[in-house]
Write a protein that binds this DNA or RNA. Structure first.
Lengths: 118, 118
DNA sequence: TTGACATATGAATGACCATTCAACTATAAT
DNA sequence: ATTATAGTTGAATGGTCATTCATATGTCAA
């Protein structure tokens, strides 16, 4: 790796540190996937939906009532959660029941909450 | 709790479920704090900064070079990370060295990365 | 005390995105 | 078939925020 590989508005101060760290960086795709994941659960409405679903399977109307929001707003956010594979759902007649996709999601919610309770 | 406590554009379908879940919801402040935390680490630039600092303490110039960004952009994001207590720093002459605030932050980064590697 | 460099910061800009609104599909009951 | 309710979805809007630009501060060397 040549020094001029670094392009920004200043000189590298600690070349060996930057070189070493650069090797430990992940692929841009990995960074995108992980930050997208955190971004999805980093929205107040979406987090509360997930938190609610962690307590019990719920339909769209129930979630809307719980959070005092419109069905449309909830449905839009559920679609974001679906695309991120954080929720699963089943239809029963007119009603669609949503639940958490897996334990992994639940663990992340809990980890976040325990983080702020230090 | 009365049924008309729920105000939205539809009827509650499963009253007991909503009631039960409502009791398990956290305070609005708790939700704000946890979602703010996830939002902070859910930005690509900030996550990459944290990931780099997890490998080694670094100064602003080094981070700017590593990520091919301006010192100003990095400094702004470091200020966000400082306010969120995710990084600590020490000054040595003209140079300011940043590092991860604690193990807890590191664990969360790792948890996120292992989540996407399923 | 002047210059050089590392970093910080305020204001402006542009992109992204949560919610709203309106229209739509799906299912069931009469 | 018609009506009613649950849910979805596309477009528009308004607010948030990452980056840029210009400027300021802090530290050191000459």
């Amino acid at each position: 790796m040549a020094k001029n590989e670094f392009i920004c508005d200043c000189e590298v101060i600690h070349f060996n540190v930057v070189s070493k760290v650069k090797e430990k960086m992940l692929s841009e795709e990995s960074f995108m996937r992980v930050t997208t994941f955190f971004k999805v659960i980093g929205d107040n409405t979406r987090f509360r939906i997930l938190w609610a679903l962690n307590q019990n399977e719920m339909c769209v109307c129930d979630i809307a009532n719980l959070l005092s929001m419109t069905k449309s707003a909830i449905s839009h956010q559920l679609s974001v959660l679906r695309k991120a594979n954080l929720v699963s759902f089943r239809r029963e007649g007119k009603t669609v029941y949503y639940s958490l996709a897996d334990e992994h999601v639940k663990n992340m919610l809990d980890a976040g909450v325990s983080h702020i309770h230090d």
